[in-house]
Simulated scan of single mutants.
Amino acid sequence: MTFGKRQSGVGAATQALNADMTVARSQAVIGTAGATGSPIRWFLMLLACSALLYAHFVTYGPDLLRDHRLKGTWQPAYDLQATDGKCERTNFVITFCTVKIKSVARPDQAPIAHGFFMLFSSGGGEALVPVRSTADRDAVSIFYTAETKLWNRTLSFILGAVILALFDAGSLLLFWRSLN
């Protein structure tokens, strides 16, 4: 024994035990482990990610395409009024905004709910000015969303879709690994 060095055990049995542990560790590093969890768990995760991706496209896609198609044709609509407008910022990254647009000329008509999200931007106290397209008189929106923040909304939509697609691909891969 050398002075000042600790010995973890006594004799050859300890050295043999340590040798077996290093062999086991090297085999564990070389081998590939399968996905932990049952295939049902990963299949449910795959379904959930696919449903979120579908909902993302169905909820935000049509309004975004409409706003790109009608870009430059928006004019203030004096017969409409924006009410109940609010933006909620989450973790200083995502902002969800909702507003109801109601008709001043026909107060018995139900208000139109309008919602959108954007990344790395806030409502910033912008005025909610209702606008109507000159190309499609039935299309109404808020000027801030239809013109000012259109590219931010587009990039936010694309980034959200890419992230959800990556989660979907990852859950598909883990489901596949758990089956094998």
Rank of each mutant, 00 (worst) to 15 (best):
N91W: 12
F157N: 06
T148R: 14
D84E: 12
G115D: 14
P62W: 07
L172N: 03
F116P: 00
D63M: 07
R25L: 13
M45Q: 09
A12E: 13
P39H: 05
G125F: 07
G31T: 12
A139M: 05
I158C: 06
D138Y: 06
Y54P: 01
I158K: 05
P107D: 06
I142W: 05
V99M: 00
L164T: 07
G160Q: 09
A48S: 14
P76Y: 05
A19P: 00
I158G: 05
I112S: 11
I112T: 15
F116Q: 03
L64W: 05
F92M: 08
L179K: 15
A113L: 13
A48T: 13
D67T: 02
E88H: 08
V10Y: 09
A16C: 01
C49R: 04
G34S: 13
I94K: 11
S156M: 00
V29R: 14
V140M: 03
P130G: 07
L44D: 04
R41S: 10
L17R: 14
T145E: 04
D84Q: 11
A33Y: 05
P107R: 10
P39S: 09
I158H: 05
R137F: 04
F167A: 13
L53R: 01
W176P: 01
L47P: 01
I142D: 08
N91D: 12
E147D: 15
F43M: 11
N152D: 11
A28Q: 12
G61I: 06
R41K: 14
M21V: 13
D63C: 01
T134E: 08
D63Q: 11
Q15V: 10
N18M: 08
A35G: 10
R69M: 08
S121Y: 04
G160T: 09
S133A: 11
L166G: 10
G34A: 14
A110G: 04
D63E: 11
L173W: 12
A55L: 14
D20P: 00
A135D: 12
S133E: 08
E147N: 09
A146Q: 04
G125N: 07
G37D: 02
S141I: 00
R137Q: 11
A35K: 02
K149N: 09
A169F: 15
A33G: 07
R153G: 01
A13P: 03
G4E: 04
D67P: 00
S133G: 10
V10W: 07
Y144Q: 11
P39R: 07
A19M: 03
A77R: 03
L179T: 13
C97T: 09
G115K: 12
L65K: 08
A135R: 14
G160N: 09
W176A: 13
